[in-house]
Design a binder for these strands. Structure first.
Lengths: 211, 211
DNA sequence: TATTGACTAGAATATTATTCTAAAATAGAA
DNA sequence: TTCTATTTTAGAATAATATTCTAGTCAATA
């Protein structure tokens, strides 16, 4: 019937090679500027091979995206759920994000700097689904902290905006080479700031020094 | 020598028509999916005419972007500089942004949802220059507030992240139809949150102006 | 009216994404 | 092994579409 699938038959490695080549090309010269010919040469695959693995250039771009986001998200959620204390969880979240970006600049450039590409429409559903799954688990974690009074009760969308927003904006600046603060300092500063605006009343905020 | 320019000779209106048509097409079906033929039909211009006004599809996309960002930024800076009190300034900034988005959904989708498109490389310089100019004036305003102790002294990049980030993230959710909070409430919530993490030590509350 | 230069038209061309046909490789069955 | 079915690869052929080119039109002056 099908193939044994326990094995990397070389077909998988070719697929990977094409994705890697595509990532490199897109990252270096941009999506529109990259021709299938470029990817073909760089990956040493043939036209037919590329189109056997990927329906179109657009879908190839989408697969590249998914490949990266999968890696990014995998550790993210465990980093969060590994924390019991709200303040630590938030810090872990921000820390994981920025460090991942620092260590995966090329992927980050693709995932974050150029997010929401129109030609991603193909993957839109898959991406949305991943976000949703991640969102649900994160939501659960945050809900617990809100119930315990550690975090201020805020609408979901505002919550997301306050945590993700600064991270993403800093990421953007970092990837453009516009940031001067180091990643470690940024984690510190952003986590502190996030805490300041998310902390529940009783979580001894502002007033004293702390830490 | 050139043209009398007191009159809109129809050439300018044609240019505008092409930009409008392009915006509509890009917004509805996406950049890659939009062919020059689509734009030609929608704008009722000829191929030659389009290429007379714009060097390429990429440059057309860039001009569309610049057209929008110009409108967006024009009021933004005056909204900020019109405020003396830090807290009010921040609120004005956030308020202007979200309201502009609400009233210019199509443009916003183009400017913010799909920002940093690769094929914007053409305009990259022009955009960067606009951002820089805006940035300088905003920086000046914030620097004053920091000196007066109204705002906490933070690195420029962190500052930008904390104000712009949440705005942009909420914008993204709004444009995707993922937000449930109304724009007005979001302005309120985000401004409050921003203030909480940016306010200087002595700025207890109550807007004791002065300076 | 004639001249000049910006503007428009649409056919012609060039580029490049995609399809197609057939050959090579691979995995399992005999 | 050899045979057979299936997957994968190759590269030429095709199709789609961005861009260029040539020949005009028009609008403003002299």
């Amino acid at each position: 019937m099908k193939r044994p699938k326990g094995k990397h038959t070389g077909t998988e490695s070719r697929r990977k090679a094409i994705i890697q080549a595509a990532l490199a090309c897109f990252s270096e010269i941009g999506f529109s500027e990259t021709s299938m010919e470029d990817i073909r040469k760089r990956s040493k695959a043939s036209t037919g091979s590329i189109y056997h693995h990927f329906k179109s250039k657009e879908q190839l771009a989408a697969e590249v995206y998914l490949e990266g986001i999968r890696d990014y998200q995998s550790d993210l959620i465990s980093a969060l759920e590994g924390q019991q204390v709200a303040k630590e969880g938030i810090r872990a979240l921000i820390g994981h994000h920025l460090k991942w970006v620092e260590h995966n600049v090329e992927w980050s450039r693709y995932l974050f700097q150029k997010r929401h590409w129109v030609f991603m429409s193909t993957a839109e559903d898959a991406i949305a689904e991943m976000d949703r799954q991640l969102g649900r688990r994160a939501e659960k974690w945050f809900a617990r902290c809100i119930r315990s009074g550690e975090l201020r009760p805020l609408p979901e969308d505002i919550f997301v905006s306050l945590i993700l927003g600064p991270c993403m904006e800093f990421t953007r600046q970092f990837l453009f080479g516009l940031s001067r603060t180091t990643i470690d300092d940024a984690v510190q500063a952003l986590a502190e700031a996030a805490w300041r605006c998310l902390a529940g009343k009783q979580s001894g905020q502002a007033g004293g020094s702390g830490s």
